[in-house]
Every structure is written in C-alpha cells, then in structure tokens.
Amino acid sequence: MNAEKASSDALDRRLVAATQGGLPLHSHPYQILGEQLGISAEEVIRRLQRMLDSGVIRRIGAVPNHYAIGYTANGMSVWDVPDARIDQLGERIGALDFVTHCYHRPRQLPDWPYNLFAMTHGSSRQEVLDKVEQIAALLGADCRSYDVLFSTRILKKTGLRISA
C-alpha cells in the first residue's frame, strides 16, 4: 500500500468516525464535516459518493426506530435447511418482499441447529407468524425444523462506533 492510499484510507476512517452518529443538522452539513477534517465540502462529498459506490456506505438517510413507526413485532425466523441447498433457498427467501434481512449463518451444535436466518417485521406477532408460515410453505421438505424469536425489548441501538 503506498503512502497516498494509506493517507486516503485514514481520512475515510475519520469521515466514518465523524458521521457514524449522524450528519450535522445544519444547512451545509458537508461544509461542517470538511471543516472538522480539514478538507473541502467538495472533498467530503466526493469521498461519501465513493463510499456509496463501493458499498462501504449502504445508504444515507433516516434510520427509524421500528417500534415507533408501527412495527411492534419483529421476528427473527431461523431455519434448519440442508447445507447443499441453502444458497438456492436463501436467495428465494431473501426475495420475499416482507423479509428485510436474510443470511446463512453457522449452526452451533448441539445448542443451535439453525443455519438460515430471515428477519420479518409486522404490526403484530400474528402478522409475523403468518409470514413465517409462508416461508415454511416455500421451504417445504427442505425445512427440518424452525423457530421464531420475537424481540421483546431493544436494549441498545447505537449503530457502529469506531474511533478515528
């Protein structure tokens, strides 16, 4: 890694650290960030755009508290499906419009037999359970067992916190 690349990465990290708690609520937020970091607003914008393009930033905007906007039921559905079929099944489950996150994760045998995780949100537990039934129907015989873990309390939600 050359010196220019290293210095560019260090500046990106400082930009992450400066924005992880949120953007300044001010007419010219990128100008303010630039002043904090000793670069121009244009440079802040260029770097944020580059991080969006590379996927370091998924998106920029409002992060709602799900409970406060009506999604009081949040069910993490977890499934034990054959490893040989999981990618095909995961793509299909992830494509369902009510699934917000879908991952392959490791089992923790014997305590935890599930390897496919699909998060669903709704206004009631029944709505979430109805959606889980749809997932079960789609998986059919590939589902060996499953469970749904409902969140009962948000204990912490701050997001990423790195130091610059």
């Binding site: 609520l25 991080m51 370091v56």
Partner: peptide, 26 residues
C-alpha cells in the same frame, strides 16, 4: 425539515440521520 428531523431524533422515532455503514468493506 431540519426542525422536524431534530424533533424525530429527540423523540427517538429516528435513531439516527446519516450514513449506514457496511464496515466489512473497510
């Protein structure tokens, strides 16, 4: 917009307003 964003953040309707990072990419 600025006033309402501040109010929504204070009321914890929004947990944050800003970039969502995928830190694996860094």
């Amino acid at each position: 917009l600025l006033t309402r964003l501040q109010r929504l953040l204070d009321a914890r309707v929004l947990t944050r307003f800003g970039p969502m990072f995928q830190i694996e990419r860094m």
